[in-house]
Amino acid sequence: MIETFKNEVSQGLNASPKTLPSKYFYDKKGDALFVEIMNLPEYYLTRSELDIFQNKTQELIDSLNLNPNTYFELIELGAGDGLKTKELLRLLDAQKFKFDYFPIDISGNALALLKQDLNKELPNVSVKPQQGDYFEILASLKKKKLPIVILFLGSNIGNMDDEMAAEFIYSLGNNLQPKDKLLLGVDLIKANNIVLPAYNDSKGITAKFNLNLLERINNELDGDFNLHHFKHQPEYNEKEGIAKSYIVSTIDQKVTISVIKKTFEFVAGEKIHTEISRKYNDVLIEKIILKTDFSISNKIMDHKAYFADYILERT
């Protein structure tokens, strides 16, 4: 893992413009900060999808066309703290569905906390955490040829550009059988005054979350980033529906990362692109799945129509 981190940081900071992968936000500190973000008044995304999972849980189950007497595997990509998924698990358990829950996450810390939490709250639910690469784990599960439902929530697909998203969903289809389902949670295109504050909260928690990536490089790769000389900067283009996050150098400076054995130069105002957050509508979703093996079988929205969970079926 450290070798991959080193290589991707080196590659990203050597690029023009500079980039760093958003997946490295999530260490122990990053996990805790993101939980804080999800509870911020400005961060509507979690509340909006939670609204669906709390108030339209039966509609989700019905849309997935599950049979209580047929065993299936419920696989969640990037499970995090499982806040929304617990609502689904609770009703599946109450209605005596036969399934195992496989949360997959890059963060071993998040998985350990989730398993501990579920064992306490829902002791009858079988939880089988899987740490690592989505597709490697899915490929191993596919060999069993059992019915599968994949959850990919939180608009995590929005961290990819449209071409990458299409390739990702196509690859998911390669690991599924016909009639398997993908529950895809996406943030819908909205006005600037709703979206931008979600990535630039008044308490500065999102800024700490973004800058923690530099702190992680300092701690794990022996870097000497001075966090006081960088700032968090979000941007949102309402017309194209894409929010972007940057770390911006506030002065001319040099940063050395000892493990990489390189020094990187920054000019005042230079950006490091860390994340995109794509927003969607029906046209974009149809375009993304056009060359995949999926079709849309349903769409469920929260009461404000900020967020949608699309039910996609493998054909």
Rank of each mutant, 00 (worst) to 15 (best):
N175M: 02
Y170M: 08
I157H: 03
F209W: 08
K208E: 15
L183A: 11
I137Q: 03
K144T: 14
D133H: 09
I194M: 11
M164R: 10
K190R: 12
D201G: 07
N124W: 05
Q116F: 09
A207P: 00
D117K: 10
P178T: 03
V186E: 04
G173Y: 02
P197C: 06
L113P: 00
K145Q: 13
L153T: 08
F168D: 04
K145Y: 09
G132W: 13
L176C: 02
I150Q: 00
E136D: 14
V195F: 05
P178F: 03
I137G: 00
L176W: 00
G173T: 01
G204I: 09
A198F: 05
N175C: 06
T206H: 03
L213I: 15
K144M: 10
G132F: 13
I157G: 00
K142I: 05
G204Q: 09
G173V: 02
L196G: 02
P129K: 08
K143E: 15
G173P: 01
L211I: 10
A112H: 11
K144S: 13
N124A: 13
V186H: 04
D117C: 02
P178S: 06
G185F: 08
I194R: 10
L111G: 01
E136G: 12
N210E: 11
I169M: 06
A198S: 14
I137H: 05
V149N: 00
N212G: 04
L113W: 04
K190A: 11
Q131A: 13
L176F: 00
K145D: 12
L213P: 02
F135E: 05
P129E: 10
I137P: 00
L113A: 13
M160A: 12
A139K: 12
Y170N: 07
L122N: 04
P129Y: 09
L141I: 07
E167T: 11
L151M: 08
L118E: 05
L183Y: 02
V149F: 02
L122G: 01
I205M: 05
K128Q: 15
S140Q: 14
S140R: 12
S155L: 10
N174R: 04
K203E: 15
N109G: 06
S140I: 07
P197T: 03
I148Q: 11
A112T: 14
L184K: 04
N175Q: 09
L141K: 03
I169N: 01
N193V: 10
I169Y: 03
A139P: 01
D187A: 08
L146D: 04
S202I: 12
I205N: 06
P197F: 06
D162N: 15
A110T: 05
L172E: 01
I169L: 15
K143H: 09
F209I: 08
N159T: 05
S107D: 07
V149G: 01
N192Q: 13
L211A: 03
K120G: 01
G173E: 03
L153M: 15
V149E: 03
K181G: 00
L138I: 04
S171P: 03
A191K: 13
